[in-house]
Design a protein around this nucleic acid. Sequence first.
RNA 1: GGCUGAGUGGCAGAGUGGUUAUGCAGCGGCCUGCAAAGCCGUGUACAGCGGUUCGAUUCCGCUCUCAGCCUCCA
Length: 463
Amino acid sequence: MSVLKIYNTLSRQKEVFTPIQKNTVGMYVCGMTVYDFCHIGHARVMVVFDVVARYLKHLGYDVKYVRNITDIDDKIIARANDAGEDFNQLTTRFINEMHRDEASLNVLKPDLEPLATESIDNIVTMIQTLITKDNAYMGPNGDVYYAVESFKNYGQLSGRQLDDMQAGERVEVDKNKRNPFDFVLWKSAKPDEPSWPSPWGAGRPGWHIECSAMSTCCLGNHFDIHGGGMDLQFPHHENEIAQSESATGERYVNTWMHNGFVRIDDEKMSKSLGNFFTVREVLKKYRGEEIRFFVLSSHYRSPLNYSDEQLNESRSALERLYTALRGIMPVQSTAKSDYISRFENAMNDDFNTAKAVSVLFECANEINRLRKTNINEAANRVADLLSMAQPLGLLEQNPDEYLQSSLGSDQTLSEADIDEKINQRLQAKADKNWSLADQIRDELKEQDVILEDSGSSTTWRRA
RNA sequence: GGCUGAGUGGCAGAGUGGUUAUGCAGCGGCCUGCAAAGCCGUGUACAGCGGUUCGAUUCCGCUCUCAGCCUCCA
């Protein structure tokens, strides 16, 4: 039996995972900024870290999973102004929408979901500490900045030196800063902007400080795993390390995990490029489980190319797995099967879900082989398949219901209609009226209902 | 310019110093009234050039190509 290894961005290698406190894991993931619907890139973060949390629990750890919500920032303010509504209304709406998307993707709720706007006290306290320790200063414009040169390890996570970076390449250098890479901790409010009181006047927190404050508040100064998308590596997570370690004087995070991007035509999917699909849009054509399978079909650090073709393949793949489960009740065997071991070996290797999923298919194949010859053993393998699918958050539906479910909107034939057609056809078959039987089958196929004869009975599923 | 990561069979996508990934699609067979599903079988795959090695897709070097980050971003 292998042990869990996780690729740590900080060391750029896989490391044996050892929690700070035996048997418990604290994990923080940077969540959404809630000013719009989630896109498939967000879905990837949600699903990937949901699987990490599920698998850690599967290994027996007591997991505390925290994922924050950024509910105040420039874009939120801009959107709220455009819509002529209070920023709170906007964020509340999109938090609800986000929760709906998560439910569709079978993403379990994190244990804590702190909001930036509810963490202002902690944020202010941390900024005060940073000023006291000379890691932060107030600029001429009244904003409070973190001084990157005050932190000797700045750049350790992203593997870059302050001197090597090209300040001002894309954004004009702010003259209020001592160093171009200094970043804002507290932003003073302009008239009519949402604001909170602070020792530096009314304002709002900068983006990076909220995560430092919320994570240390929820999980302690030093915790096990911190995750997020690749793009957060720099500057967001680099800045979090600087802030947190300066403020607490302790090591901040042991393991940094970053997931790869979703791409479209080999280009990063992002809001700024405008080439994104929302989860909501994709759910009109595909089941949440199909999207989830698609995400898990490649390794979390690899790029993931989005296309209908890919989603169609995920659909076929899930059909195969559910078909294997059909008609056999799981029976847990006493001995741990080889499939489970191989599955865990794959997952222990930095959550290699692509490899892990391949074990599910091999198990499905075994079930199909055994179902005619050894139903008891087949039932054991069904139990294996389900227990492997559990940490992946897959195959939780009833197989028949899954295979007979439609995506709703264009539901033309009811189950009763289908049953009636099947009965007509069974009669035709009994009469050896093959042309009528085939005609009925073809008619149903036109409506995306596929018949499968087995002996004297007929089952059906939707295409 | 600096720093990452990647190039695998028709497609997607794992992995490995010498032996089957897996899924989808294809082809042949079994099953079936015929199908569907399933089962069995089947594919001169590892960007290019050098090097190390008995042997490299797997290690090393170089080249080419692609993607990402360098204060919007999951």
